[in-house]
Amino acid sequence: MNAPSIIPAVPAVRSAEERVGRLDWPALAAELDGHGCAVLSKLLTPAECAAIAALYPQEAHFRSHVHMARHGFGQGEYRYFRYPLPDLVGGMRTALYPHLAPIANAWNGRMGEATRYPAEHAAFLTLCREAGQTRPTPLLLQYGAGDFNCLHQDLYGDLAFPIQVAILLSEPGRDFTGGEFVLTEQRPRMQSRAEVVPLRQGDAVAFAVHNRPVQGSRGPYRVNLRHGVSRLRSGQRHTVGIIFHDAR
């Protein structure tokens, strides 16, 4: 039996590349540098959001199902996609990566890290496989009233790409209330800084997975970030997470 493809279909990639290429990447890079996150407005249409959210009960698309409360992660649940990824998810993963890799490389340079990331996602996935990280990490999350996601970092092995993307598939105020995306940043010898990111349906947030550099009076220094979702007050919320490294 042939192994499932980890490379998305060419038409899906081209469509995503056209859409992603229209974004103002210099401004987004400045937001990521300044705040550790940036909003990619209207990345998906409402119809595309609904189509991805509708995959959640279809087990054939997923490799595992996690109930957060069983592991102390919060309340709610999520499923990791299996390869091959749905065309839209795989296309976005492939199209977003080349715009984020230069930012990631600049961050590593400023933090004194030797790791550099290749220009194309396929080459980076080859490095993941060589490191024994072969399981896909894009995931679909589902929250109901009272659910939340504890502050955490999505690190699945020794090789981790330092930026990831989450796309909100539901409409705040109509489909759910509460459930804000939250990012916290811990700087040395300082109290944590919190960032609440407002999103609408189809908006994405790109954010630091683990560390990022901040310019201080004596040069750049490293800060530590975690992300989560605040308690849902009502309704149901779906999000697709695009993580660029694979897991062991």
Rank of each mutant, 00 (worst) to 15 (best):
N2K: 12
A3N: 11
A3P: 07
P8Q: 00
P11R: 01
A12T: 13
V13W: 11
R14E: 15
A16L: 12
V20P: 14
L23H: 10
L23P: 05
P26E: 06
P26D: 06
A29I: 05
E31P: 05
G34C: 07
H35N: 08
G36I: 03
V39S: 10
L40F: 11
S41G: 10
T45Q: 14
A47I: 00
A50R: 13
E59Q: 12
A60C: 03
F62M: 09
H67V: 13
E77R: 15
P84E: 02
D87A: 14
V89W: 03
H99W: 05
L100S: 11
N105D: 14
A106P: 07
E113S: 09
E113V: 14
T115F: 06
R116H: 15
P118R: 11
P118S: 07
P118L: 08
E120N: 07
E120K: 10
H121I: 00
T126D: 15
L127W: 10
L127F: 04
C128F: 04
R129Q: 09
R129L: 01
A131R: 05
Q133E: 06
Q133H: 14
T137D: 11
L140H: 07
L141Y: 10
Q142E: 04
A145I: 04
A145H: 03
N149A: 15
H152W: 02
D154Y: 00
A160W: 11
P162V: 04
P162C: 03
I167K: 07
G173F: 08
G173I: 05
D175Q: 10
F176H: 12
F176R: 01
G178I: 10
E180K: 12
V182L: 15
T184K: 02
T184D: 06
T184H: 01
Q191W: 04
Q191L: 07
S192M: 00
S192P: 06
V197F: 08
V197K: 13
V197Y: 05
L199G: 05
L199S: 05
Q201V: 13
A204Q: 02
V205D: 04
F207S: 01
V209N: 11
R212K: 10
V214E: 03
V214P: 02
G216S: 08
Y221Q: 04
Y221W: 13
R222H: 12
V223Y: 10
N224M: 08
N224I: 04
N224P: 02
S230A: 06
R233D: 01
R233N: 00
S234N: 02
R237K: 09
R237G: 04
R237D: 01
V240E: 09
G241D: 03
G241S: 11
I242S: 06
I242M: 10
A247N: 09
A247C: 11
R248K: 14
